[in-house]
């Protein structure tokens, strides 16, 4: 009789321990899943986005100061742009002058990632005339 009771008590302990372990695993799993969800949601790299903002503005400023934008020649602008654009980035520039002339570099703006769009106003001067233009640009990670 005692032997039976001992055996029953041992089984009960085992069942309780198993249940306890199972419940603990479930609770831990739920919490880890929730935590992972939170971390995944927050996994947007804003430092890299800020880098895009600064790089985009600097790129058009360099092209303006270097005189490339003034040429209003898409080949010249593309060539200069590709020379100074760091690896891992793509960029597109569209220029519109006050006489409605439009110059655009080749490139398709992606829809599946963050794209920074900015603008720059600039003045085109030559020996006979002064005209005005705005450069709109888009920059994104490859």
């Amino acid at each position: 009789m005692n032997q039976y009771l001992n055996s029953y008590s041992g089984n009960k302990k085992g069942i309780v321990l198993s249940l306890d372990a199972a419940i603990a695993v479930v609770i831990v799993s739920i919490i880890v899943i929730i935590a992972t969800t939170y971390i995944t949601k927050s996994n947007n790299d804003y430092t890299s986005r800020m880098q895009l903002v600064k790089l985009g503005n600097d790129m058009v400023a360099v092209l303006d100061y270097g005189g490339a934008l003034n040429t209003l020649n898409s080949d010249v602008i593309s060539s200069k742009m590709n020379n100074i654009l760091p690896i891992g980035y793509n960029m597109k520039i569209r220029i519109e002058t006050n006489s409605s002339r439009i110059v655009e570099t080749i490139g398709i703006i992606p829809e599946d990632r963050y794209v920074f769009a900015g603008r720059r106003l600039f003045v085109i001067t030559n020996s006979t005339d002064t005209s005005y233009a705005k450069a709109r640009f888009w920059i994104w990670n490859k």
């Binding site: 804003y46 986005r49 800020m50 903002v53 600064k54 503005n57 400023a61 303006d64 100061y65 920074f116 900015g118 603008r119 720059r120 106003l121 600039f122 003045v123 001067t125 002064t130 005005y132």
Partner: peptide, 25 residues
């Protein structure tokens, strides 16, 4: 923070481009 900083960057970039335009004129 990103939205605010990027707005400041844009603001400054647009201001500087206008200033450079005036200087060139």
């Amino acid at each position: 923070r990103f939205n605010t900083l990027s707005l400041f960057e844009r603001l400054n970039a647009e201001y500087l481009s206008a200033e450079k335009g005036i200087s060139r004129i």
